[in-house]
Design a protein around this nucleic acid. Sequence first.
DNA 1: TAATCGTTGGTTTTT
DNA 2: CCAACGATTA
Length: 729
Amino acid sequence: MSDLLAHLNPSQAQAVTLPDEHALILAGAGSGKTRVLTTRIAWLIHSGAVSPAGILAVTFTNKAAREMRLRIEAMVDGRARGMWIGTFHGLCNRLLRAHHRDAGLAALFQILDVADQLAAIKRLLKALNVDSDRFPPRELLYFINTHKEAGLRPHAIEAHDDYTRRRVELYQEYEAQCQRESVVDFAELLLRCHELLQRNEPVRRHYQQRFRHILVDEFQDTNALQYRWLKLLAAEGGEGGAALFCVGDDDQSIYRFRGANVGNMRDFEREFHVRHLIRLEQNYRSHGNILDAANAIISNNGNRLGKNLWTERGEGEPIRVFEALSDGDEARWIVGEIETLVREGVARGDIALLYRANAQSRALEHQLFSSGIPYRVHGGLRFFERQEIKHALAYLRLIANADDDTAFMRVVNFPARGIGARSQELLLDAARAGGASLYAAIAALSGRSAVALAPFHRLIEDLRGETAALPLPDLVEHVLERSGLRTHYQTEKEGQDRLENLAELVTAARNFSVEAQVAPETWGAPHGLLAEFLNHASLEAGDHQAGAEEDAVQLMTIHAAKGLEFDVVFLGGLEEELFPHGNSLAESGGLEEERRLMYVAVTRARKRLYLSCAQERVLHGQTHYCLRSRFLDEIPQSLVKFLARGTQRSASAAPSGSGAVSRPRAPETASSRGLPGGLRIGQNVRHPRFGYGVIVAAEGGGGDAKAQINFGDAGVKWLLLSAAKLETV
DNA sequence: TAATCGTTGGTTTTT
DNA sequence: CCAACGATTA
């Protein structure tokens, strides 16, 4: 047992060996958070304090849950079996399946992902004849989800205006529709589970008594409902409740926009009378200069729980800062620098390009592509979200549950089988009138549309019969064939990739049936394993992308980079309005969240960090003249090395010869020649009173020349150049 | 039913 | 600028 603790520093060891009481672990970036969490669990089991079945560990991603289980298994050889490790959604799903009756759900209820949910809402609005201009589906989705995440059912919402009253009604209608179709969305999983535990005392007591230790990862990202769920399970305040062990970092809370509530950390500390607050501040990832920069940046935020990262490593290299002329120039510079690094032996996979917004990847990709550097963009469409996969899953869903109208609508006429908009409308009306699902309503049709829909009805019937006894992979295979999906993509000229993905789906089903331990409650149910596979597909969007093996430069948003680390990190687009993003500046607390994002970005780097900004950037087809980000100025100058144009080690392979990274002036700039004093649009200037600014427009000439200058916080002003004491920067 | 045109909106998104 | 969606047209 002592060797469990052998590689831990004192704070880590203290956290791991805490008594059976509530604890809050403030784990800084790179401080060994996961190690503490997993070792804690192993230690609890080894010390005999609790049996594996008494442990519940909660994460946010399936990947994190898998890794945690793997690492624990390595430490407790085989005794990890009875532990519950999973995401909030995965665990709630499991509980709801086990107690579906008590929760008022069908045994084989399906899970809607966001796209399904949006489709369901659109269908609802259409059925109710609601003007979707007045009630945009996206807005309604947001309305429903935020209220669910706040634990509010329609009847509990106070509506003070007609508009909200109507939205509440629609929320209610949406719930009824989901119930009728036996589907639940993500937020519903949590809310339903919370209600189950709250209302059903035997069930609640059962789990409260079972789980002696509840451990939560990324606690700063929990939302209000998740925290309430934890409180309920841990029997807050009651005798004999579980010990809650929460690990998180308030400085890395970057999902507020999605409902995450950092305040949960303080609330937890207070409500559970937490006596053990441990800070993990020793960082094992980054060199000193990088940490110092991160600390300096985040110190500008107020209301922190407080933490200062340090390292035993040396200070390392300075942080490199580059000011590019334009976004294209920035991309060229970054790629030039990457070429140098690769030539010096840095693996491409150890280099990451981070950015605030996905749109920024375009320029970078373009440049990487033309330089022939392999790269991989993270994010974007995931496996189970692809069109062809969703189509295949829809057929599978109809087999498991024919009342799933979302699935029905998706494939009723795909591949095209002559069921046009008219037939679909008639069917929707019939279903609505009879209070039945679309599938059931086919029987009620007559005339032309009945004829049109009959073959589809028969197809689904047949599929159910034919597949009832098939092993899951064969079942999927059969559906691909019989539904006509495969033939459809075979005849489509761009269908090759899609066919491969469909084949990959069969593989996924095979892997799933090998690995899955089928939950007892679905044993024997005719398509029980299928239902579980479908849930797996909804809850796990599929991180395993093809082509992950090649040694490639990694591109992703800062959000996507959380939890990852790289030897070399490039962070581009450090400009006001982009990062910090303009939209976030308006909301209260927005700037601080942006700053945490900056903190996350900086702490991804192990050895070398490059920061860059551009003087002008094309966004939405318009050229913006940018001020450098305030975050750049929050880094102590002593840590920084400013790279001047041409200073970079010359690369013979560079696009236009050594140092010649600047491009010809843009037309906009050329049109502004004639401004006195060598000023041009896009020029950075300093004014004695207004501070730093950038010229965004100009008019007049000679002695009358005026320039419009954006001074950031000081506003945008027109100044007479002959009078203003401007200094170029 | 499919193809085409026009409108709209574009920060981040673990489940 | 440009992708994605909805409505209109062939």
